[in-house]
């Protein structure tokens, strides 16, 4: 049984269909990347998985349980954590942001997880009382990731964490995710355009116009012509 299984998913905005029958799965402890050009439907797919959009057709299962029409906060409680491109509350403090990351845990567990996160992200500790909006772009992403992991999720869903970061910071984010995934053993589904993430993943999907056009493990993806053209072609 897959941790996450998406079957023939159709979804979109109001009456505009964006996803035209997506099949995707994520296994325990697996790292899966979602590639696709701007407007391909990556964010839409992640939002649909989180219950933020209406599902027109198809099914979503998490640990075998049908969550197709489950409310967002209940999905989060089942163990799916999501970081959107924004991901944090700029007008709340770093500490409050973390607290909200584990909103449904009891206060003792929250406290423990917070200490753990401050240990992972020393930089956040020194900005504990600062408003999240006053952090640098890189620090905000760190906070977003820490907030995400607060609830001890089984599946972490990330929407373009590299967005707006310098190559150096992108490397740092990848290292942190790599390290934390080894420690905490969650699965990752990550939407990215940055090719630097390709080696981080074990398997991937390329979507275009709301359909999966290529899927497979890393070497399949790298040798695929569509991927080559779309990603490696524009690289230099």
């Amino acid at each position: 049984m897959s941790l996450l299984e998406v079957q023939s998913l159709e979804s979109g905005y109001k009456i505009l269909k964006v996803l035209w029958g997506i099949d995707l799965n994520v296994e325990q402890k697996e790292r899966v990347i979602l590639l696709g050009v701007n407007g391909a439907g990556k964010t839409t797919l992640l939002k649909a998985i989180m219950g933020l959009l209406k599902i027109f057709n198809g099914k979503i299962y998490f640990e075998g349980k049908d969550i197709t029409h489950l409310r967002t906060d209940k999905r989060v409680k089942l163990g799916i954590a999501y970081m959107s491109e924004i991901g944090i509350f700029p007008n709340l403090t770093v500490d409050e942001n973390l607290e909200l990351g584990a909103f449904f845990l009891d206060s003792k567990l929250t406290h423990q997880r917070k200490q753990q996160m401050y240990e992972y992200f020393q930089d956040l500790l020194s900005h504990k009382k600062a408003l999240a909006g006053s952090l640098s772009g890189g620090q905000r992403k760190m906070l977003g990731i820490a907030k995400l992991l607060m609830s001890n999720p089984k599946l972490v869903v990330l929407d373009e964490p590299s967005n707006g970061l310098s190559p150096k910071f992108v490397k740092l984010i990848i290292n942190i995710l790599d390290d934390l995934q080894n420690k905490e053993q969650f699965s990752i589904l990550i939407a990215e355009q940055n090719i630097a993430f390709l080696d981080f993943a074990q398997r991937g999907y390329v979507i275009d116009n709301g359909k999966v056009v290529v899927s497979g493990n890393l070497s399949d993806l790298k040798s695929n012509n569509i991927v080559k053209k779309a990603y490696f072609g524009i690289e230099n």
Partner: peptide, 12 residues
């Protein structure tokens, strides 16, 4: 602040 980010933090 942001109702979507709140809902994905597990807030009803």
């Amino acid at each position: 602040e942001d109702s979507i980010t709140a809902s994905v933090a597990g807030v009803n």
